[in-house]
């Protein structure tokens, strides 16, 4: 198995606060990797380092062996990393379809000349983009809502749409930041089916942050645990479940069975 993602001693400091402290993680091709940890452990910050929203103070990030530490967020998308956000950041004044269309590289890379003078060729290209997006809409179960404004969707559907948008960039790796937050158990089932679909049918990799332990334990191949910005454990779900350090990190409560956040 090839290594797709690697961070080497990734560190970021905000003033006096070290949000992520020398974290090294790796992800193999084909595995679903999860990041867990109590609130404020630095999970989302690590995501922001991986996607280029923040630059690490120290350390490196590699993607398929290639150094990407210095790349801007949009350049990392070109390399094949896309993401969703903890607090949904859809283009809410745009329709469901538009949200997917614009994420497709063929759409936003249209040149200004093409846009103004383009004829049949452009129309054909656009048609292909629309068809691709329709495929994704089917996968996320929103194919009957394509003219709906994103903001009018129920919360759970918005999360799915955001995943769809991330897929529309045609990534190799999708980072999902708490995709199940705010979903009911039915929607969560739908979500895990979608994640399996992404990894097995679409052959993309998934790295996710999740609070729902049942969900995480069920879906992950491997889990990395962060606490206070440091990696405190890493391993298969069953090992993590019994790791005393992890239990301690969750304030001795034991691992919450069903922490719905």
């Amino acid at each position: 198995m090839a290594q797709i993602l690697e961070t080497i001693n990734a560190t970021i400091k905000f003033g006096g606060l070290t949000a992520v402290n020398s974290v090294s993680i790796t992800q193999e091709e084909g595995e679903i990797l999860s990041l867990i940890g109590p609130n404020g452990a630095g999970k989302t910050t690590l995501f922001n380092l991986l996607t280029g929203v923040y630059r690490p103070t120290e350390g490196n990030i590699k993607f398929y062996g290639e150094e990407i530490t210095g790349l801007k967020p949009h350049e990392r998308v070109d390399k094949g990393i896309s993401r969703t956000f903890q607090n949904i950041r859809l283009f809410h004044e745009m329709t469901v379809l538009e949200n997917l269309l614009i994420a497709n590289p063929d759409c936003h890379r249209e040149s200004i000349w093409e846009a103004v003078f383009g004829g049949r060729k452009l129309r054909q290209k656009r048609q292909r983009v629309v068809e691709k997006c329709e495929g994704i809409l089917k996968a996320i179960g929103l194919e009957d809502k394509l003219e709906e404004l994103a903001t009018n969707l129920p919360y759970g559907k918005q999360r799915l749409l955001e995943i769809g948008r991330a897929l529309s960039t045609d990534p190799k790796l999708v980072l999902l930041d708490e995709p199940g937050a705010g979903m009911n158990s039915l929607e969560k089932e739908e979500l895990s089916r979608l994640i399996y679909y992404i990894t097995t049918d679409m052959k993309k990799n998934v790295l996710l942050i999740e609070h729902d332990m049942k969900f995480v334990m069920g879906i992950s191949d491997r889990i990395v645990v962060l606490d206070h910005g440091e990696k405190i454990a890493e391993g298969k779900p069953e090992d993590i479940q019994n790791n005393p350090l992890v239990i301690e990190a969750y304030l001795g409560k034991g691992i919450p069975e069903d922490d719905d956040d």
């Binding site: 896309s82 950041r89 283009f91 809410h92 948008r165 960039t169």
Partner: peptide
């Protein structure tokens, strides 16, 4: 328009 609505989200999809 995506840039107007949310620059960070726009960057996250390669814009």
């Amino acid at each position: 328009q995506t840039v107007k609505i949310d620059e960070i989200a726009a960057e996250s999809i390669g814009i």
